[in-house]
């Protein structure tokens, strides 16, 4: 893989983008497929705020290495685009690109980074655009489509990939996503020949989780309801039974999306708060350690008495050969229980 980052490498990002364009033009000219991938680390900005720029660079470096590992057979050309990683896969088919995205997502979940003595785990949002020779689109259009796809993946909660065909809106891909995708482009489905059948199955089949992925996040209530009605119309002549089912599907979908959105937002906010608080605790702990070390050093310099060592290195407890062992054990248990009640009351009051 030819890869350039901001710090080193044989080519600058601009050089690499120029090479990408050349490569892209070549594959279009020869009528072979080509895939563009844009990778973003979820919540990288927050991680940088909490753990510093060094941690961010370490994470991006790790993801770049991962990309090397999972794409070695496709020989992509890649570069860093600010905090994102862009890669072109000449000759790659849609299936191959989706497989790379899946391997990348899975690999990222297994990665573990260290910062301030804490281990960090990351997830990725991957945008994929697959160009067909017949589309006749230029590289910039292709790049914009990939950016839109990655934005969809991020808006969907991250840890997922979204594919799109540049000639149309982004289409869904649940590759590697552990959560039900919130919404992804329905437009992509309509632009892809032969995609009606799976979508109908998604709406009418036995897998309610897929229903959500058939609905674009960006669509309002009216739009996705229209989509469902369109799909039902394609089933054949209208009957009262089918109308009833259609209405029920719309109703259930609406309820599910409202509930899913509310839950997702709350979880995301909680996760953000936890990250911030954990970061603060880690920083405070470091400061406390440093302060205590300094106090210890000063105390030694000033000849301050460090205290007298206890004769016990561990908690003793009642010796079994103690006189009245059973009775004392009961008494100590009662003292403990009384104090536990008191403490619980105190904690409850606080």
């Amino acid at each position: 893989m030819t890869f350039s980052d901001s710090e080193n490498g044989l080519f600058s990002p601009e050089d690499i983008q120029r090479l990408m364009r050349i490569e892209y033009d070549r594959v279009i000219r020869y009528g072979i497929s080509c895939c563009l991938m844009l990778v973003e680390v979820d919540r990288l900005g927050y991680l940088q705020d909490l753990y510093g720029v060094e941690s961010k660079e370490k994470i991006l470096q790790g993801i770049t290495e991962l990309l090397h590992t999972v794409t070695s057979d496709l020989e992509p050309v890649g570069c860093r685009q600010e905090d994102r990683i862009l890669a072109v896969f000449p000759h790659a088919t849609q299936e191959e690109a989706a497989a790379v995205a899946r391997r990348l997502l899975e690999g990222a979940r297994r990665l573990e980074f260290q910062s301030d003595g804490r281990s960090l785990r990351v997830t990725l949002s991957v945008g994929l655009a697959v160009a067909e020779a017949a589309s006749g689109l230029n590289f910039d259009h292709f790049l914009r489509a990939t950016e839109e796809a990655v934005t969809k993946a991020i808006d969907g909660g991250g840890d997922r990939s979204v594919e799109c065909h540049p000639a149309a809106e982004p289409s869904p891909s649940s590759a590697g996503s552990p959560e039900p995708p919130e919404d992804t482009g329905s437009g992509g489905a309509s632009a892809s020949p032969g995609s009606e059948e799976p979508e109908l199955q998604a709406v009418l089949g036995d897998e309610p989780a897929e229903t959500g992925s058939a609905i674009s996040e960006g669509l309002g209530k009216g739009a996705w309801a229209d989509q469902i009605r369109t799909l039902f119309r394609r089933l054949g002549p209208r009957t009262p039974g089918l109308d009833r089912i259609e209405n029920q599907v719309i109703k259930i979908t609406e309820e599910s999306l409202v509930s899913f959105d509310a839950h997702g937002e709350a979880c995301e906010e909680d996760r953000r708060q936890i990250d911030i608080l954990e970061g603060r605790v880690a920083k405070l702990k470091l400061m406390l350690d440093a302060t205590e070390d300094e106090l210890h050093r000063l105390a030694l310099e000033k000849g301050v008495d460090p205290g007298i060592k206890s004769i016990y290195r561990s908690v003793q407890g009642l010796a079994t050969d103690s006189g009245d062992y059973a009775r004392k054990k009961d008494i100590l248990g009662l003292i403990y229980e009384a104090n536990l009640r008191l403490l619980e009351k105190l904690r409850g009051g606080a």
Partner: peptide
Amino acid sequence: IAHDMPAEF
């Protein structure tokens, strides 16, 4: 009492 109290308490 402190000495005799078990660690878990």
